[in-house]
């Protein structure tokens, strides 16, 4: 009796405002609609529409491309930082850790705005290029998928650092020392011990960054444009500008399914970690 009294109100709240809305989203994606109001007719038309227009397919492919690139870059850049933060005995350790994590406190808009300042038409990069007489007139660098990738990598780096620190904390530094004492070079010792043992952390960090990157809106919206749509910006266009809620829902379901697939992959990785 007691547990139900405790959970009744919050569980009811979640049923009403989380489960039910997602059910409606799912059904809206499978129904024909006139503008914002779905009719009762079942259809897969929304999904075939998404898949039959070049611009939508491109956006979906671009989103996954961005996710892959961001996931890889986050792991690549976060690993050395996490490694140094875990292994250092410096008294600056806590300061360095705080600095690495402090961007988490800033809204993603703040974290993205700096990149716009650097790369816009009048931005610092153009200024520098012109000052060095490398270009005569400013380059148009935005919108750009590449800079979206940079912006998202920057925004997600702290999460990568946290995930990899957790993984590295579980690996004794004595393993590398043992390998070195047995005649391995530093790099070789690292590659033979720490690297494989932190593989679950690497995969976990990659999947986390990938998942957040494919559903990010603000960064692609600020650094991108009509030619660099991602799923998230396209959903916003469907919902807010075109008022085509069926297509928006369908794309939302695609995004949802992608994230759930990712979740299952993550669970698989952590189960393997539990087994070994």
């Amino acid at each position: 009796m007691v547990p139900y009294l405790l959970v009744a109100v919050p569980a009811g709240f979640l049923l009403a405002f989380f489960v039910a809305p997602n059910m409606i989203l799912l059904s809206a994606s499978l129904l024909e609609s006139e503008g914002m109001v779905p009719t009762g007719v079942l259809t897969l038309g929304n999904f075939t529409t998404l898949l039959s227009h070049r611009i939508y397919v491109d956006a979906i492919i671009r989103t996954f491309g961005i996710g892959l690139a961001v996931g890889a870059l986050v792991v690549l850049l976060a690993y050395p930082v996490a490694y140094v933060l875990v292994r250092t005995t410096s008294r600056w350790k806590n300061v360095l850790l705080a600095l690495a994590l402090s961007p988490l406190l800033a809204s993603v808009i703040v974290r993205t705005y700096g990149w716009w300042v650097l790369f816009n038409r009048d931005g610092a990069v153009n200024e520098a290029l012109q000052a060095l007489h490398l270009t005569a007139r400013p380059l148009i660098m935005l919108p750009s998928t590449a800079i979206i990738i940079v912006g998202l990598t920057h925004a997600l780096l702290p999460y990568g650092v946290l995930t990899l620190m957790a993984a590295l904390n579980g690996v004794s530094p004595n393993l590398e020392r043992a390998a070195i004492s047995l005649g391995a070079g530093r790099m070789r010792a690292f590659a033979a011990t720490t690297l494989p043992l932190t593989a679950p952390g690497i995969i976990g960090g990659f999947l986390l960054a990938f998942g957040v990157a494919i559903s990010a809106y603000a960064t692609p919206a600020i650094l991108g444009g009509p030619a660099t749509q991602t799923m998230a910006t396209l959903i916003y266009t469907f919902m807010a500008t075109l008022l085509n809620w069926s297509l928006g829902s369908a794309l939302g379901v695609v995004l949802l399914a992608s994230c759930l697939t990712l979740l299952m992959l993550t669970a698989l990785v952590s189960r393997r970690r539990a087994l070994t």
């Binding site: 559903s215 998230a232 949802l256």
Partner: peptide, 27 residues
């Protein structure tokens, strides 16, 4: 089931939660 429901919003994109909520409230 209740635990899964509680942790659900963590793994689903909040953007999707947003459009789902928008449609739900409207309907």
């Amino acid at each position: 089931a209740i635990q899964a429901m509680t942790l659900g919003p963590l793994v689903l994109p909040s953007l999707v939660t947003g459009i789902a909520l928008l449609q739900f409230l409207t309907l």
